[in-house]
């Protein structure tokens, strides 16, 4: 049985439930555990990079839409200072998003080398 991030089961997402205003956006958002399982499937099908992506995705389920969009914006070239990217790393670690934090930390390292910081 598949659960959404809200804990609601996919089986309960019916037209009747929508009709009665019972379905919220979180009910149709993927659960991190599902992404972790899909990462295993990707690994078993010879794509460890897709697996790594899905594991980062599992972490990002914890962030709200707005913050996800903001962090994406911050990672674009010449947007952020070193301190700003470091702060994001800390924030991600605090949320348990260690893989994503590592990605941002690595971006910072390379952006410094390639002069892509603000």
């Amino acid at each position: 049985m598949t659960l959404g991030i809200s804990g609601r089961s996919a089986e309960n997402i019916t037209l009747e439930a929508v009709r009665s205003g019972d379905i919220r956006p979180e009910d149709i958002r993927i659960h991190p555990d599902t992404l972790v399982q899909q990462a295993e499937v990707a690994r078993a099908h010879a794509n460890p990079q897709l697996a790594a992506n899905l594991l980062r995705a599992a972490e990002l389920t914890r962030l709200d839409d707005h913050r996800v969009l903001e962090i994406y914006e911050a990672l674009r070239p010449n947007r952020s200072t070193s301190a700003q990217l470091l702060a994001i790393t800390d924030e991600l670690v605090a949320q348990g998003a260690v893989l994503t934090a590592e990605l941002v930390r690595e971006a910072l390292e390379i952006y410094e080398q390639r002069s892509l910081l603000a």
């Binding site: 980062r56 995705a57 972490e59 962030l63 969009l69 994406y72 990672l75 390379i110 952006y111």
Partner: peptide, 12 residues
């Protein structure tokens, strides 16, 4: 790195 993040954002 921004593209990798974006890729994960969609999957998330």
């Amino acid at each position: 790195w921004s593209k990798a993040f974006l890729t994960s954002a969609y999957a998330s």
